[in-house]
Design a protein around this nucleic acid. Structure first.
Length: 232
DNA sequence: GCGACAG
DNA sequence: ATCTTGTCGC
């Protein structure tokens, strides 16, 4: 895919914060047309010692049959700092995105979108690079609070931070911990929640994220490669 | 000042 | 994120 970088990744934590504040103004919130989605991508990164491996798996929608898998590796360039995940995982993800042949209609990212202290989580950040719709899918809370959430699948309540609704706590599966969903770029909260529910017919993790997580975890020493899909 | 803190 | 077997519950 054609990428649209906005800055260098070689920055200090202070510069990273300043960059996020600047990029925040470029994020577009708008409904995502769910009925037009044909391809959905899952995005994840795994860290092994000082190396990071990114995985982007593109799958059909609905159906979630993998049609393209891209893996990329690079030295982990930045420490884990809550709020600055983009600067740790962004560089490898950029490599993976650059080699992507297909053009997914939406990307589900493992991490936050606007549910971030400066409303600029990694899903927002990558959305700008891709200039495509992105949705942040967090497994644990970074910021914000939410009230009682029913145990049934599909239940969802607003995630609020400093008086602002930044996303939603979503029960993608009955009686399991909720997922924290927030729009990245070119999406809004209602459509992001709906998309994630449609991508989670059975498990807590959305199907595209599950596929990407599996691919990223499969660290094969010499086996970095791009491929159509595993053949049965 | 103290606690919280995506992956 | 990562270190790791068995095990409780639907």
């Amino acid at each position: 895919m054609r990428l649209h970088p906005r800055h260098s990744w070689t920055v200090t934590p202070e510069e990273a914060v300043a960059i996020q504040k600047r990029l925040r103004a470029e994020i577009v919130s708008q409904p995502l047309d769910l009925d037009a989605v044909r391809l959905v991508a899952g995005v994840d990164v795994s860290v092994k010692e000082n190396e990071s491996q990114a995985a982007v798996v593109v799958a059909t929608y609905p159906g979630f049959e993998p049609v393209e898998t891209v893996l990329a590796r690079a030295p982990t360039p930045f420490p884990y700092v809550p709020g600055l995940l983009s600067f740790r995982e962004g560089p490898v993800l950029e490599e993976a995105f650059a080699r992507l042949q297909s053009e997914p209609d939406v990307f589900l990212v493992d991490g936050m979108g606007t549910a971030h202290p400066r409303r600029m989580g990694i899903a927002c950040h990558m959305g700008l690079w891709l200039e495509r719709p992105t949705i942040g899918c967090g497994k644990t809370l970074l910021v914000g609070r939410f009230s009682d959430l029913p145990e049934e699948r599909g239940a969802h309540v607003p995630l609020v931070h400093r008086g602002e609704t930044i996303g939603a706590a979503v029960r993608t599966r009955a009686r399991t911990n909720p997922m924290f969903i927030s729009p990245g770029h070119l999406a809004d909260i209602p459509s992001a929640v709906e998309m994630v529910m449609r991508c989670s017919p059975k498990w807590r993790l959305p199907e595209p994220i599950r596929l990407a997580h599996k691919a990223a975890g499969a660290f094969v020493p010499g086996g970095q490669a791009s491929s159509p899909a595993p053949s049965s």
